[in-house]
Amino acid sequence: MGVAAGAGALSTAGVGIQQLLVTLHRQRGLILVLVERELKARYRGTVLGYLWSLLNPILLLAVYSLVFTLVIPARVPTHVPYPLFLFAGLLPWLFASGAMLDASVVLLDNGPLLKKVMCPPEVFPAVTVISHLVHHLLALPVLFVGIGVAVLAGRATFPLTVLLAPLALLPWVVAVSGLVLLIAALAVHFRDLKDLLHNLLSLLFFLTPIIYTPELVPAGMLRRLVLANPVTPMIQVYRDVLLLGRIPPLAVWGWASLVALVCWGLGTAIFMRLRETLVETV
């Protein structure tokens, strides 16, 4: 297995990815039950239960609306109200960062299952991605209602491009799947990764045009940095389609897809490479 040559490593990675997909397909029943468990256990014992999935984003939107209309009135060069602009950028970011933070502990938390029951390790990253995706999808109606309210108030037009939403979400899902696999496997060997990740993610958050648009960044070094940030095209695609009602330029779309594929390829290759050592190291 220890192939040093680049070409060899690539072909082992290819086999690895195929293996991964086969196992995930075979374990789909288990994955679904585990996602169900995750969602159930999360709200077990709370009075509102599943309503929290809806309530959390509503409250988040309410807080941002309050802060950015009354406390610090913010302006972005778009035709929609700022809270909606922010919310549409925040949703995919929370999906990605939440899944990645969970990924850094998912294998350690499920150690007993890996070591004591024979459970293929890739099941757990898959569960992480899917349950965060479910939460993301549950928050989308809040965005649409928000847009609806803005339309009624004459502050926005309804984005017909939402029909393309699955296409805008796809790069996110692919990229997050890869990164979650990558982080889950590396976090087993490098326990520092969890704390490192927290800080990296907050840095990345401010380097990504979520609370601002690239045009607001002073031209020069900083703006080039923001534009070179691989998350930027992904946020742009998502926000264009789900909020601003425009079809993103093909170049941006292509750039986002490329980022997603690289994340996925890298993540699966490293995960499969470390797969056999995971159980003994956990």
Binding site: K40, R44, L113, K116, V117, M118
Partner: peptide
């Protein structure tokens, strides 16, 4: 089937 630790992986909340 492995009987290594009984109830390994039971989730307390569900």
């Amino acid at each position: 089937t492995a009987l290594i630790e009984l109830g390994a992986g039971f989730h307390p909340e569900i």
